[in-house]
């Protein structure tokens, strides 16, 4: 870890107002500075810590930027093959119905190669939580077009912008899974401002609490930026996300079935 200069007079136990959750390992995150993954990791791990369920949690990491989530999330965790995390999580939950089981997946993983596994886990009403990080691009492999890339949006495999006539339309997986009877709670959140982070964290908490009800799958999309893949500064990418991603992927609850 990097060494930071600190003022020992200020760093005293009585002055602590906030600290990194111990459910994140001390390893440096592999994400680009400015990317939303780190914040998404943090709020999920904070919720697990606050609920006191570390020993009851089994996570499933995807293939993509967050393939190394198992390095950072200090819970028992399996790394699934590309797109198959919901199938892996299905088996874990069926074999351990009392554990808290979640997947953490990007848009390429969840909405392209893993479409079948996502839809069927949702449709069976597996009592798990799916966290879906949507940044509209394949970040890990260097910025190719994703199923969620916006019309006209440039990527390395749509260098002149996504032409929907030849490349198809972006897929709104979250709206799609909300139509399935097996989903209990479907929401879309973001982590670009402190207020968005607080709301997203409440959604994460609700998604985990739902597993105690045994009434279906909770699906939490987090619309995120990819400043590297979008070729922008972190600030520009967040502004671009608000101006372009949010109109297409509106933030808020899509399905809240509290009396189900």
């Amino acid at each position: 870890m990097a060494e930071f200069k600190t003022n020992p007079e200020i760093v005293q136990p009585e002055n602590v107002v906030y600290k990194r959750t111990e459910l994140l390992t001390p390893k440096d995150l592999s994400y680009c500075p400015g990317c939303g993954h780190g914040t998404a990791h943090r709020i999920i791990m904070e919720v697990i810590e606050e609920m006191g369920i570390q020993s009851e949690t089994i996570a499933v990491a995807p293939v993509g930027c967050s393939v190394l989530a198992y390095e950072f999330m200090n819970v028992d965790i399996q790394q699934a093959s590309h797109g198959r995390a919901p199938a892996v999580a299905t088996a874990i939950k069926r074999l351990f119905p009392d554990k808290f089981v979640f997947t953490y997946q990007g848009d390429g993983d969840l909405a392209a190669i893993g479409t079948a596994e996502t839809i069927h886990a949702c449709n069976r009403g597996e009592n798990i939580t799916i966290f879906f990080i949507n940044n509209g691009i394949y970040g890990m492999t260097g910025g190719q077009m994703a199923p969620t890339t916006l019309p006209g949006m440039k990527s390395s495999t749509s260098p002149y912008g996504r032409d929907v006539a030849t490349m198809g339309n972006p897929l709104k997986m979250t709206e799609l899974v909300a139509t399935l009877p097996g989903t209990l709670y479907v929401t879309r959140q973001a982590v670009h401002t402190p207020s968005a982070v607080r709301k997203a964290k409440r959604a994460v908490r609700k998604a985990f609490e739902n597993q105690k009800l045994n009434k279906g799958l909770s699906f939490v999309e987090i619309v995120s930026n990819c400043n590297s893949g979008w070729k922008m500064t972190p600030l520009q990418s967040n502004e671009w996300m608000v101006d372009n991603m949010f109109p297409f992927y509106p933030i808020g609850d899509i399905k809240v079935n509290d009396d189900k």
């Binding site: 089994i58 399996q78 198959r84 999580a89 299905t90 874990i92 079948a116």
Partner: peptide
């Protein structure tokens, strides 16, 4: 009963990992 052979073998991965 899984949705495909692919899902089935990945369910096996998940269960075996436990």
């Amino acid at each position: 009963q899984a949705e495909s052979e692919i899902a089935a073998i990945n369910m096996v991965y998940g269960g075996a990992g436990c």
